[in-house]
Amino acid sequence: MNPFPRRGLLAAAAVSPFAALAACQVQGGADAAESDFPKRAVDFMVPFDPGGSGDLISRAIAKAAEEPLGQSLAVTNKPGANGAVGLKELLAGKADGYSIALAVKSLFAITPLAVDDPEAVIIDDLRIITTLTNEAYVLVVHADSPYQTLEDLLAADSVNYATTGVGTGSQLSAQLLFTGAGIDATDVPFDGGASAVTALLGQEVDAVSASLAETMPQVEAGELRPIAVFSEERSPFLQDVPTAVEAGFDVVVDQRRFIVAPADVPDETAGVLSLAFEEAREGAEYGQFLQDNYMDRWEVDNLEAKTHLSEAAAEYAALVEDAGLQLGDGA
């Protein structure tokens, strides 16, 4: 049936080029102390397209972490299936700390609600090295829209809203809100944030739920009006905009990014990496990057992070179940 032997490919990919390199380098003792880590460049895989938010933040943190780590971080993009392609490859590789990757919350908490994949990567396969950002979703309408507030919009007879794609936080947040409000709303998934925002600018739809980074330039230019944020507390970038929770809808959806390694990476190695990234997060340039890209910090220890991710997955699943939603068509 399957013309492409994926298992074989993954097994092939398992031996990373750097592992081969290590095999060639015959230097030092046979098994030098673990504390030597890192002896060479660390491969930092970004399982997303170049130029997107995930790519930009990875490059920013990688640059900041090189000095504290004492080695360079080689950023490689390996996009596909909201990060699943890259993370599966990470898991097939060696757990020696020389391969790490960026991961996002939506892959573990939202994608499973839309896409049925029996071989999906689960969070227990991974060890969280460090947590990075928390990016809120915001509901925006056109500046010329008659809807001034969330109440106005929810009083409408019917609403067409754009989302940035199937199985995204954008879709989940908007669906939960509109179903909760019990109004007749049609979900129109677009191909990414830019095309969803374009549709709203052209007034093809009444509203869009998208991340701050995707909407803030237009908000600041006065073209779009934010009417609700889907975070627990108000966003520091939009102090005047109420949360959906304030309006009486228990919808909290955000995107969080963090760095992972395979679960069985040695503790000491993981510790070295974690320390380097923690120091990198304090850098001024990285701070400025977050500010410019409307990203909030999410800096917790890996136990708390793991708890958050599994709780979010369970919570979203329950919410979707209660509301009788169908994100995709598959699951």
Binding site: L9, A12, A13, V15, S16, P17, A20, L21
Partner: peptide, 8 residues
């Protein structure tokens, strides 16, 4: 293509 990622 299959050797590529294994041995560089």
């Amino acid at each position: 293509a299959s050797l590529f990622e294994v041995v560089g």
